[in-house]
Design a protein around this nucleic acid. Structure first.
Length: 586
DNA sequence: AATTTACATACTGCCCCGTA
DNA sequence: TACGGGGCAGTATGTAAATT
């Protein structure tokens, strides 16, 4: 969507022109590089700034990825993929990074303060692309974006489960089983990672291809058994949890596991008690119960604030201790006690409920100003802005989105896009309209009722749908009956209250104007003036009743070409504020 | 594995205004 | 005068993805 596109722009640093220039230190440079290179699956040995533990972690990550790579591209990963070679390559790449970044600094392109994780990822991808051009087939293609991979794996896993559940009694060929396992292994790498022997073997498998083959064979045999069991258990549990959550299969593997671990026993218990699971908004009782549970947990652990429980990371010094206590006393399960929902939803609700940064009332003008300023500085890093403003990230994001709608005069190009948007919709609603544009007549109603403003706004690009509607209704001469200033009219008529006048008006039009619901205010006035008034005058004079006057279709409809005569057919008319000077459209 | 963050969307309460 | 629809500002929920 538009918004996300905007955000993506931000995250990728496209919009950073407005950000003030930041100092780029060598250290920062290193930091960025380290991050990027780690994600790029490279080992860093040159950077001494790194702590040894970080190094270890990175090495682990690297090894893990290498293992995955090994599994996925067995044939491709031949002898040249030895550790030493990789190191050489990585060193080269690293050097390239430094050069690249230094160049950016020189060009003034590099900005600090872009802490978004996703941005880093994108940066990474950019780097990968850059390096791919210059380097000989890097193994980086093995990362065809984590998302896709995950989804693919999830799909495969679900297929497996489906097969399993349907054919529990059927014997599945060993080969098929193995393939399934292999797939499953890829998905649930966590499983194999946790298994020390497995890990060991996998580490070995990196060393030489031959060894890798044999050890993989053993490992597979071992894991076949393990995973088969795991699969069967999963299938069984899955069908159990399905009873409570029919859509369980649409969830991520990890989520399903968590639900099975935390929620299945609870759900069963609720079932035994005859309590059905709740969905939708939390009820007052549930909220109360959650508060009580949190209070109890606080009493149990001697933690003095719910914020410490739900926002542990905000308390750096006590963090370790709090985490330990939470883990020890099963925080997740305890806070969800007596609430027939998934533990996770209870936790998420708690995070909303106990966030002191929520429920802060309307934004003042100063706050809005600050918000704007901070957004210029930090982009969509709402967490950072939240820290600086004391408002929750969510409320900030939402509020910004609202004020981010472009303000000020409509440019000519914007008006053009609006016209095109409305026209295209109107044409699409009338069969054969496209061919007979010039002679086409459209009902007034078609021009202002039930227009798809969201879609039209997407075509206008720079304005919200409400702005588009407002512009069209109030400024493009499409009258809105809501715009009658009864106070002013009352002043013209004489000594009557506005409400009286309004009521009279209503009666007048209802009694005298046929089809008044389909007419705009101005049409009704015209009709009353031209047709009804003479009649009433006659009536008054002769006291004779008269038939209702007729009307022609011309009063109700408009020439299509008249309405959209000013539309510029150039589809490429693109905005910008550049021609804001063009204020005649106002 | 546990926890946190990000994001889309649904929902709510309030106000204004037209209508009966 | 009461009711109801539309718009607006803000909040809640559900879930995927990322991080620790």
């Amino acid at each position: 969507m538009g918004k996300s596109k905007e955000e993506k722009k931000w995250k990728s640093g496209v919009c950073l022109e407005s950000a003030p220039a930041c100092t780029v230190t060598y250290e920062n440079l290193h930091k960025d590089k380290l991050q990027t290179s780690t994600e790029k699956d490279t080992s860093i040995t040159d950077f001494s700034l790194e702590s040894s533990s970080v190094k270890r972690k990175k090495k682990k990550k690297k090894e893990k990825r290498n293992r995955l790579l090994e599994q996925e591209t067995v044939s491709a990963c031949s002898t040249e993929h030895t550790e030493s070679l990789r190191n050489d390559k990585e060193k080269k790449r690293k050097r390239k990074f430094i050069e690249e970044e230094l160049r950016q600094v020189e060009d003034g392109n590099l900005r600090t303060e872009e802490p978004k994780r996703k941005k880093k990822k994108r940066e990474k991808n950019v780097h990968v692309n850059e390096t791919e051009e210059t380097q000989i087939s890097e193994p980086s293609e093995d990362v065809p974006t984590k998302k896709k991979k995950k989804k693919k794996k999830l799909k495969e896993w679900k297929e497996n489960i489906a097969v399993k559940t349907e054919e529990v009694s059927l014997t599945i060929g060993l080969e098929t089983q193995r393939n399934e396992k292999r797939k499953k292994k890829n998905i649930s790498k966590d499983n194999s990672r946790d298994h020390p022997s497995t890990q060991h073997k996998q580490t070995e498998s990196v060393s030489t291809p031959e060894e890798a083959q044999t050890s993989r064979g053993d490992k597979e045999a071992n894991q076949d058994v393990q995973t088969r069991e795991a699969l069967e258990i999963d299938a069984k549990l899955l069908s159990e949890i399905k009873e409570f959550m029919p859509n369980i299969e649409s969830k991520e593997v990890m989520s399903i596991r968590k639900i099975i671990k935390y929620d299945l026993p609870r759900f069963k218990e609720f079932k035994n008690q005859g309590i059905s699971l709740n969905h939708g908004r939390f009820t007052a009782q549930e909220n109360e119960r959650l508060k009580k549970n949190v209070k109890d947990f606080m009493a149990l652990t001697a933690i003095d604030s719910p914020i410490k429980l739900f926002f542990t990371c905000r308390f750096k010094q006590e963090q370790e201790n709090i985490k330990k206590l939470k883990w020890l006393h099963k925080f997740f399960e305890r806070i969800a006690e007596g609430i027939p929902r998934s533990c996770y939803y209870v936790y998420a609700r708690g995070r909303k409920m106990f966030d002191e940064q929520n429920y802060r009332g309307e934004f003042s003008k100063e706050e809005l100003h600050t918000l704007n300023k901070l957004h210029n500085l930090h982009g969509n890093n709402w967490k950072k802005i939240s820290e600086l403003t004391g408002r929750s990230a969510i409320s900030l994001e939402k509020r910004y989105k609202q004020i981010a709608d472009k303000e000020g005069p409509w440019s000519n190009k914007e008006v053009q896009r609006l016209l095109r948007g409305v026209r295209d919709y109107v044409v699409s609603q009338i069969p054969g309209a496209a061919e007979s544009n010039s002679s086409l007549r459209v009902m007034k109603e078609t021009l202002y009722k039930r227009l798809p403003w969201q879609k039209i706004a997407m075509k206008v690009k720079t304005r919200s749908w409400t702005q588009c509607r407002e512009k069209w209704m109030y400024e493009m001469d499409v009258d809105d009956p809501a715009c009658v200033n009864w106070e002013d009219l009352t002043a013209l008529i004489g000594d009557v209250p506005p409400a009286y006048l309004q009521r009279k008006w209503h009666k007048l039009k209802v009694c005298n104007v046929p089809d008044w619901q389909r007419k705009c205010f101005a049409d009704i006035v015209d009709f009353l003036y031209e047709k009804v008034l003479p009649e009433l005058e006659k009536k008054l004079l002769s006291l004779k009743g008269l038939d209702e006057t007729q009307h022609t279709t011309d009063d109700e409809s408009y020439l299509f070409s008249d309405i959209f005569k000013d539309v510029n057919e150039d589809e490429d008319v693109d905005d910008d504020d550049s021609d804001n000077k063009n204020k005649e459209s106002q």
